[in-house]
């Protein structure tokens, strides 16, 4: 769709700070069973007054990794109990916004999702929610650092038309946010125009590609 080669290969690692390395290791290694696969013990150096730190990695499957930084001698900066080790929020910030940033880890099927539910429910970090979304089912908890962690499985494969729909949504969104006062209603109106312009041709192209296989 972009006309460019798509060469990337998924998440190498996503990194988060922690003030609680013991809880972090208990949660990811001992409760969830994610192996520790890499760590760096580094003396502080550089232009800033950088503390000594440990950078440690858990295998989250598919050769992807979840990494943490523990900085010796540091304590949390935020004074709010809303948020996580990275950021804290005042009472003016709504809960839906705080919950918007999270990490979702994929599992293959319902049995695997329930296995991780069992592991969490037996720990001090039980599952807080289990939700069937539009096409995925997820469990959620917060890790010892306050980070929201989701484990999720697809309830069915994604269909080709959902990729078309996603692209029409984004094109409509870009048009709507370029104008004053963007709204959901304006997006649906713009998207309706794009559906009329492009959806029939897309289906013909799909049919041609299928016939050519």
């Amino acid at each position: 769709m972009t006309g460019m080669d798509h060469r990337v290969q998924g998440v190498d690692h996503a990194a988060f700070p922690t003030f609680d390395p013991a809880g972090t290791v208990r949660f990811y290694r001992d409760v969830l069973g994610f192996p520790v696969v890499h760590s760096i013990c580094a003396a502080g150096w550089g232009p800033e007054d950088h503390p000594d730190f440990i950078h440690f990695f858990f295998d989250i499957g598919n050769d992807d990794r979840l990494a943490f930084f523990y900085y010796f001698g540091t304590t949390p900066w935020g004074d709010s109990d809303r948020g996580d080790a990275y950021a804290s929020f005042g009472p003016e910030v709504p809960e839906y916004f705080i919950r918007s940033r999270h990490l979702a880890i994929h599992v293959d099927n319902y049995d695997d999702l329930m296995e991780y539910r069992r592991r969490l429910d037996e720990s001090q970090w039980p599952v807080e929610m289990q939700i069937q979304h539009e096409t995925i089912e997820s469990i959620y908890t917060h890790d010892p650092n306050g980070y929201m962690i989701e484990l999720t499985r697809a309830m069915r494969p994604v269909t080709p038309q959902e990729d078309l729909d996603a692209n029409l949504t984004i094109d409509a969104l870009l048009d709507v946010v370029a104008e004053p006062d963007p709204s959901f209603g304006k997006l649906l109106a713009r998207k309706a125009e794009l559906i009329v312009q492009r959806a029939a041709d897309w289906e013909l192209t799909q049919a041609g590609e299928t016939a050519g296989k």
Partner: peptide
């Protein structure tokens, strides 16, 4: 979850 995300466009 399905209901509230089912509308793709409105003329």
């Amino acid at each position: 979850a399905v209901w509230y995300s089912s509308v793709a466009g409105v003329a």
